[in-house]
Design a binder for these strands. Sequence first.
DNA 1: ACAAACTTTCAGTTTTTACTGAAAGTTTAA
DNA 2: TTAAACTTTCAGTAAAAACTGAAAGTTTGT
Lengths: 170, 170
Amino acid sequence: MKLTDAKFKFITSWGVFGSQWGINKTMAQIHGLLLVAEQPLSTEEVMETLQISRGNANMNIRSLIDWGLVYKESKIGERKEFFRGEKDIWVVSKRVVKMRHEKELLPLLRLLEELNCQEITDGDPKSITIYKETIQDISKFAKQADTMLTRVENANENWFWKKLMKLFIR
Amino acid sequence: MKLTDAKFKFITSWGVFGSQWGINKTMAQIHGLLLVAEQPLSTEEVMETLQISRGNANMNIRSLIDWGLVYKESKIGERKEFFRGEKDIWVVSKRVVKMRHEKELLPLLRLLEELNCQEITDGDPKSITIYKETIQDISKFAKQADTMLTRVENANENWFWKKLMKLFIR
DNA sequence: ACAAACTTTCAGTTTTTACTGAAAGTTTAA
DNA sequence: TTAAACTTTCAGTAAAAACTGAAAGTTTGT
């Protein structure tokens, strides 16, 4: 098998996995491409390799930069921008965790807070109690998850895995 | 605020959060509805409450059953099927983790295994080495994540949080 | 100040995903 | 064995998400 073919296989699959997470296929493919690229690539090279339009390439590269998974670079003597993928997979996952934390858990916490504060004025008292308990349970859980995620986001790789592995070996 | 309104607010938002994860909006709404329902509900009641068609309700309820988030129940004297939501949020998350583990991580592990085995016959030796290292790093990480997830899936709630909290408080 | 080189935006289009509703299938009771 | 009561399926349709490409915007060197 040729190296190029292996890389293409990786990129394509990375796209599929990405789309199973909330990340769109092209965004994941660009990320995959930059993960296995030895040198930073230009927008043109990304467009060409993945056969996508300029707009598409540009938008998704921006997104990846927002996520902290790709960095903008310039080469001396070149006016074009080049893009370098974050290669440290631990850093990549921390960024993804952080993004999902913010976009998925924090809004839930806010909603639960709001529902917890709302006085329920109308309804069968027993039903109200049951409902409040349900919301309380979910809140408690969400808060614990929040604490844990915050800590993962600030953890150091070796320390994290070492501790975590130890933890699970009863 | 009326109890019914609060519940509706919860259900609608639960749908939004669901759709940010891979779960489709209606599936998440049905789940939300059954989370705050005191009694098991019939397909008809779900259809009516969420204003959705029979086919849609049926399909998504099946999905929820597959995920282990909803149980089928029968009431004596009633021919209809009723559906009860899993209320223990810890159980709910374990099921979701398990599902995502199977659908998202295992296929990645298989791909990486495959790429690791493939002999690369053609390409610059140095480039091949770099590529192999990249794949190796990702593999190593994916395997650790796999081990961890498997253990979470089998963990007991109190034990899990207690240990985890201890772990993170340096 | 100009224009070449490059990046960003966005209206229109394509692709993908989800939903409807009616028809087919299944179960139960008489 | 029949039919009523219920569940499932799926072809067609609607809604949502992603992509294209050309036009507008920006930066840089002379």
